[in-house]
């Protein structure tokens, strides 16, 4: 099922567009990576797709429902989200719990099922023992894992990730990619992930969208170039 369709998107910060004529899609059950040189407006493309930024031209269509006919849910992991305000008064548990709120929980009391989900999410990133710590007191890598646990707790249909493994060690990174691959292939979720290291993730991802600079233009403007076909990947 098609979750995200981006058609002919053009985005500009000042007078000249940084992204022009962008077309891409993301289906349920696939793990898609987004690559491009530094300054290729990868984060901008994701923000425009999510509606955080408004494109100048073009259309972004987000499916209203997921493959089971329920309301489609998104989770977004912004770049360097983990460098948050050290004084933010919250425990790790409270923070991960907040991932459950968008699922009708803004005003509803959370139940056993929610609590179980929070626990599983914290355990998945190895942060259950740290759940009573203040998030500001965590190390960079732990903060990143807390943010990822919040994302898992929200149990989304689409994971939109902007360089999520920054600050993670090699082992945790590998486990994270395996989890994302599993979520896509076993649970039909979709993953759209910006990465600066496509080689690292090539065994897990299904498809790569590569942003390339349009050399005909004197300013830096990028278009989409897809370079991997779906289906020829496998997990070791």
């Amino acid at each position: 099922m098609r979750y995200i369709t981006v058609e002919d998107l053009t985005f500009q910060y000042d007078s000249e567009p940084v992204l022009e004529g962008i077309n891409y899609y993301v289906d349920s059950g696939e793990f898609v990576t987004l690559t491009g040189e530094n300054g290729a407006a990868k984060s901008t493309l994701i923000k425009a797709t999510l509606g955080i930024l408004t494109p100048k031209v073009g259309k972004v269509t987000m499916s209203k429902t997921n493959k089971d006919g329920k309301k489609l849910r998104l989770a977004y992991l912004p770049q360097q989200i983990a460098s948050f305000n050290a004084g933010f008064p919250s425990t790790v548990y409270e923070f991960v719990k907040s991932g459950r709120y968008p699922r009708n929980g803004w005003f509803r009391r959370l139940d056993k099922h929610d609590e179980e989900h929070i626990k599983v999410s914290l355990e998945a990133v190895g942060m259950w023992e740290n759940r009573h710590k203040r998030i500001g007191s965590l190390s960079g890598g732990q903060k990143q894992r807390a943010v990822i646990a919040r994302m898992f707790a929200s149990d989304p249909d689409i994971f939109v990730l902007d360089e999520p493994t920054t600050g993670m060690d090699a082992g945790t990174t590998k486990t994270f990619y395996e989890l994302m691959h599993h979520s896509a292939h076993k649970h039909g979720k979709s993953v759209l992930m910006i990465t600066h290291d496509p080689d690292e993730v090539k065994d897990y991802a299904d498809r790569n969208i590569h942003l390339v600079r349009n050399q005909d233009l004197p300013w830096r403007c990028f278009n989409v170039h897809e370079n991997d076909q779906k289906g020829d990947n496998h997990v070791h």
Binding site: L50, I52, L74, I81, S90, S98
Partner: peptide
Amino acid sequence: FDEDTALV
């Protein structure tokens, strides 16, 4: 915590 996260 984060306005972009809130929006999404």
